[in-house]
Design a protein around this nucleic acid. Sequence first.
RNA 1: GGAGAAAUGGCAGAGUGGUCGAAUGCGGCAGUCUUGAAAACUGUUGAGGGUCACACCUCCGGGGGUUCGAAUCCCUCUUUCUCCGCCA
Length: 423
Amino acid sequence: MLQLQAIRESKNEFITALKKRNIDAAPLLDKAIALDDKRRETQTKLDKTLAESNSLSKEIGMLFKTGKAQEATVLKEKTGVLKEESKVLSDTLTSVAEELQTLLYQIPNIPHDSVPAGNTEEDNEEVFAEGDVPELVSSALPHWELAKKYDIIDFELGVKVTGAGFPVYKGKGARLQRALISYFLDKNAEAGYTEIQVPHLVNEASGYGTGQLPDKEGQMYHVGEDDLYLIPTAEVPVTNLFRGEIIKEEQFPICYTAYTPCFRREAGSYGAHVRGLNRLHQFDKVEIVRVEHPSKSFEALDGMVEHVKNILRELKLPYRVLRLCGGDLGFTSVLTYDFEVFSTAQDRWLEISSVSNFEAYQSNRLKLRFKDENGKSQFAHTLNGSSLALPRVLAGILENYQVEDGIEIPEVLIPYCGFSKID
RNA sequence: GGAGAAAUGGCAGAGUGGUCGAAUGCGGCAGUCUUGAAAACUGUUGAGGGUCACACCUCCGGGGGUUCGAAUCCCUCUUUCUCCGCCA
């Protein structure tokens, strides 16, 4: 969430920038400032009351010690009144603070200067493209047909066991999946990201920390009995490792990578756009997460973008990079680059990675701080990106690498797979 | 799942109703000494709110209660440890 101080200092700039998200932020920001004023005012009054009450209590203590019980009794009546007052003030403070918090949760992050205005994905800005779209054989099929033909992914079996959107990977399909996970993790480790394994279920506080809660709870599977959420992305557990931490400046940059399955309820639509691997309730993803010094976060973002480019280059997949417009930008993000692979057989682009800088927005929720050179606590910046999401990469490989009599395996993956062709 | 014990500052660990935001040790930082380092000695060292700066307020796992006053007493939740049971 946004910091009050920043809202006070840059209100007009924020209003302008939030217009790119098609939000009229003026009333929200004004209300936040008004609530904060009220909060401060109430706090000051409460502090004074408590201070008086504290000093009286000390006096009473002294009087009892020196045997002046009667005088103490007189003072006791006074503190009784103060107690009432402070109770009222403290209740007011709690409710004002809650109201302020709720309001702040509703205000999205401020888009970066470079973020284009716009409403839909049509308005996203292509900033880079690379790789040749292959000429496919005339009998080329979309990946869900290929999956069936070579018996490597079984969607119906998944329906039987669980439901739609939970595929079963078989044989070389399963092996290719595992190969991709290993390959991505290795590439990330090579680039300096420390591999970690994290829980796949998180508590409510973690959901709030990274911004899935309170508004997007419908997106996550909730285990009611234990009040836990299945993670929609590794971002949630990994970033929450740092919740409430005050780190040392020399610990920057913090770079983690984690493989996890991801679970998304998303009441999805039906049809060709979500067929096969295009949209799933459970899928695998390798994520990269960074915690950075505020002065370095955009440099880090660029680094992450280059890193993902390298992987796609090695896989020899045709892809493009988009800078998301204000309307498509995630609630907590300042700047996001989406990576899309071209699926030749489907003749469309598939999103396979999203790399974002959240600046201090998540940190403020997480209370993730560091000590700067003056010994002051400051919020760190957090970033994350997929490196990479499995299903659509898999779809891209299956479709773009298909030949007359099978599917070839990208060269870099052969050592991981132990075979060079699916047939 | 059953029985018991515990949760205090970066760590260890005192503190069982009143100047306790908290002894002491270790660690960290600064200084003295030293060519330099180590050792020794001296000082300093939690977070948040608030203030120009002070003052002041809050926080001893979370929440609630008793009391003029709570780290300390009561209730509750969570977590950890020990023993038993079960188990990949």
